[in-house]
Amino acid sequence: MRSKTLRSKTWIMKLKNLLLLFSTVFFSSCMNEDDMDTTMDKDDMEMSADMDEDQMTMYMGEFVSDAHPTSGKVNVNTNKNILEFSDFKSDDGPLLEVYLATDTKASEFITLGELKGLEGDYEYDLPDNVDFEEYQYVLIWCVDFSVNFGYAKIE
């Protein structure tokens, strides 16, 4: 009886090994040579370096409340021509505008126009050649009362 159980276990182990070998051969035969070639040519390496550089220069931040509850995320796309709001939310007010500013008091600013909405995802066109080392703040600014509803520091 014991010998029969031992033979069954041996047979099952051989079957498992055979299935493993078969599946390895089967799946590796499905791959083409392009999938297996992992070397990068010079152009691929330069493109990868350019992408890394673009990602390093991308600016982003999170809104924090100032005079009114304000939240969400903001980022500048890699081409630096679009300012993107995501999951944005703020209170309503008279004439709210989006500013790029040097500080939270809007001492020096670039207006991107009126706030497009109080809740959601929005995009604003950026002027050419904005210096984001100088204009580090995105403000939700109430023009009528000169009040900062909320801001994000983009880094």
Rank of each mutant, 00 (worst) to 15 (best):
L95W: 05
D92P: 08
Y135F: 15
D131W: 03
E133I: 11
T104N: 03
E123D: 02
G113I: 12
E134S: 15
T111H: 01
D128Y: 05
E97D: 04
E123Q: 10
L95G: 05
V98P: 08
T104K: 05
D91T: 13
L118W: 01
Q136A: 14
Y135L: 14
E114L: 02
T104Y: 04
D125P: 06
F132P: 09
E134I: 12
L96C: 01
E119F: 11
D92G: 08
E133L: 09
G113E: 12
L96Q: 04
D92N: 03
I140C: 13
I110H: 01
K105Y: 12
L95P: 04
G120R: 03
T104D: 05
F132Q: 14
L126S: 02
Y135G: 15
I110L: 05
V138K: 11
E108G: 00
Y122V: 14
D103A: 02
E114F: 01
G120L: 07
Y99E: 07
L115K: 05
K105G: 10
K116R: 13
E134V: 15
Q136M: 14
G93A: 14
T111K: 08
A106H: 14
V143L: 15
E97M: 11
Y137S: 09
I140A: 07
F109K: 14
S107E: 15
P94N: 12
L96W: 06
L139T: 10
L115E: 12
A106L: 01
T111Q: 10
G120H: 00
L139P: 09
L95V: 02
S107G: 13
C142Q: 13
I110G: 02
G117L: 06
D91Q: 08
I110T: 11
E133A: 13
V143H: 11
C142S: 12
E119M: 14
I110R: 00
T111P: 10
Y135M: 07
G117Y: 03
E97N: 15
G113M: 08
V130N: 14
L112K: 14
D92T: 11
E108M: 06
A101E: 03
L112H: 07
D92R: 05
G120D: 00
V143K: 10
G113L: 05
V98C: 13
K105M: 13
D128H: 12
L100N: 02
L95Q: 04
V138A: 06
A101G: 15
L115V: 13
E97V: 15
F109S: 13
P94Q: 02
E123T: 14
I140T: 10
P94H: 00
P94Y: 04
D125H: 11
L139D: 08
F132E: 00
T104A: 07
D131A: 06
L126W: 04
E114T: 07
P94I: 03
L112I: 15
D103T: 09
F109T: 03
V130M: 10
D91N: 02
D121I: 13
E123K: 12
D125L: 06
D103S: 10
E114N: 11
D91P: 01
V138W: 14
D131P: 10
E108K: 14
K105F: 00
F132M: 02
V143I: 15
K105V: 00
Y135W: 09
A101V: 07
L139C: 08
D131L: 08
D125N: 07
L96I: 09
G117N: 09
G93H: 07
D92C: 00
D121G: 09
Y122M: 08
G120Y: 00
L139V: 12
T102M: 06
E114H: 12
